[in-house]
C-alpha cells in the first residue's frame, strides 16, 4: 500500500490542493467587497507525460485556474506542488528561476507577442535570463527551435505583425519550448485559429510532447480537442471541478449532468449524423452570487429538492473517476 502511493507520487508532476482564487469587487468606495469565486476549492493532480484537459463554458474559471497554477495570478488559498516543491512558498526570486520549468501558451497569438520585438528577441529573451550563453549560442538555439516548430531561420528578424495567426502561435510555442520546460499550460491554444491550422498546431503539440517528454495542462472549451489530446479530463463549472476522470470515463461513462449536456451540445461534423439537439439552456450564473446547494441545479434537468439545499461532494464513483453530484448518471 505504502509502496504504491509512493510510486504514484513519483509519477505526479503537479498536485493542486484546495486551490482558491477570489477576486474582490467593490461596487463603490464604502461598500463591503463582494467576491468573484473564479476558482473555488479545486483539487487535482497531473501525472508526468500526460495531458490533463480542463473543459467548461466561458466564465467557468478555467483560464484563471491555469494562471493560478503557474502563479501568474496569486492564489487566495491552497497550494500547488510542482515536482515535490510547493510553488506558493517560493520567494519571487526563486519563482522567477523556477519559471523555466513551467511555461504557458496563451489563447491569443495576436497579443501574446511583443509588437516591437523581432522573433529572435522574443524567443531569445528567456534564454538570456535562464542560461549563460553567448549571443552566437542564443542565435543557434533560436534557429534550431524555429525549424523545430516549422518556421525558417530567416524569420528571426521579422516582427510579429508579419506573420499569420498560425505562425504566431508557432512562435509562442517556440518561446515556451526553447527553455526546455517540463510542464506547459496550453490555454485554448487553437481557439483563435482556422480549423485547418488548428489541426496542424495540435498535431505538432502532440509530437513535441512525445519528443520532449512534456506534460500539458490543456484548457479548452472544444471537446474535440480534448478527445484528440487529453489523457485525463476535469470538467469545470462555476469555479469548481464537477467531474474528474480519464478521457474514457468522461466521454463514455459520463456521470455529471453538466458534462453530459456539454458533450451532447456539440453538433456532429456531418449533417447526415443524428444530433440529439440537446442544448444547455441559460447562461452560466454570476460567480459572485453562486446558487445555493449544487451550483448547477438551476440549469440541471435532473435537479431535485436536495440539490437546492445541499452541496454535493466530489465523490469517487469508480477508481479515478469522480463526480460532484447527488444523482450521478450511469451509476
Amino acid at each position: 500500500m505504502q509502496a504504491t502511493t509512493e510510486r504514484e507520487n513519483r509519477d505526479i508532476l503537479i498536485q493542486a490542493n484546495h486551490l482558491r482564487k477570489l477576486f474582490a469587487v467593490k461596487k463603490n468606495f464604502y461598500s463591503h467587497p463582494l467576491y468573484v469565486k473564479a476558482v473555488d476549492d479545486c483539487d487535482f493532480s497531473i501525472r508526468k507525460n500526460t495531458v490533463f484537459g480542463i473543459v467548461g463554458e466561458s466564465g467557468s474559471g478555467k483560464t484563471t485556474l491555469g494562471r493560478v497554477i503557474l502563479r501568474l495570478i496569486e492564489a487566495t488559498g491552497g497550494s500547488v506542488v510542482f515536482d515535490g516543491k510547493n510553488l506558493m512558498s517560493l520567494s519571487s526570486q526563486e519563482l522567477r528561476l523556477f519559471r523555466r520549468r513551467m511555461q504557458i501558451i496563451s489563447q491569443d497569438p495576436y497579443n501574446s507577442l511583443h509588437p516591437r520585438k523581432v522573433v529572435k528577441k522574443l524567443i531569445g529573451e528567456g534564454l538570456g535570463i535562464h542560461f549563460r550563453l553567448s549571443s552566437q549560442e542564443i542565435d543557434e538555439r533560436v534557429k534550431n527551435i524555429l525549424t523545430l516548430v516549422g518556421l525558417r531561420e530567416e524569420h528571426m528578424y521579422r516582427y510579429p505583425h508579419e506573420f499569420s495567426g498560425g505562425q504566431r502561435q508557432r512562435i509562442a510555442i517556440a518561446r515556451a519550448l526553447v527553455l526546455k520546460p517540463e510542464f506547459i499550460v496550453l490555454d485554448e491554444p487553437t481557439s483563435a485559429l482556422d480549423v485547418s491550422v488548428q489541426a496542424i498546431i495540435l498535431k505538432m503539440l502532440k509530437e513535441l510532447k512525445r519528443d520532449f517528454a512534456l506534460t500539458y495542462m490543456l484548457i479548452t472549451h472544444d471537446l474535440a480537442v480534448i478527445d484528440y489530446m487529453a489523457d485525463d479530463v476535469a470538467v469545470m463549472y462555476l469555479g469548481q471541478i464537477v467531474e474528474l476522470g480519464s478521457k474514457n470515463d468522461i466521454f463514455l461513462r459520463t456521470a455529471h449532468p453538466y458534462a453530459c449536456l456539454l458533450i451532447d451540445s456539440v453538433p456532429p461534423p456531418t449533417p447526415s449524423e443524428h444530433w440529439s439537439g440537446k442544448i444547455l439552456n441559460g447562461e452560466i450564473p454570476s460567480p459572485i452570487h453562486v446558487p445555493s446547494g449544487c451550483r448547477f441545479h438551476p440549469r440541471c434537468p435532473q435537479a431535485r429538492e436536495i440539490c437546492k439545499t445541499k452541496e454535493p461532494v466530489l465523490s469517487e464513483l469508480q477508481p479515478g473517476h469522480f463526480a460532484k453530484c447527488h444523482f450521478p448518471l450511469n451509476a
Binding site: Q103, I104, S106, S112, H114, E125, L179
Partner: peptide
C-alpha cells in the same frame, strides 16, 4: 497585455 504576461511567464524580473 498578454505579451507582458508572457514575458513574466518566461521569468523576466519586474525591472526588466
Amino acid at each position: 497585455q498578454p505579451y507582458i504576461e508572457a514575458i513574466k511567464a518566461v521569468g523576466a524580473s519586474d525591472f526588466k
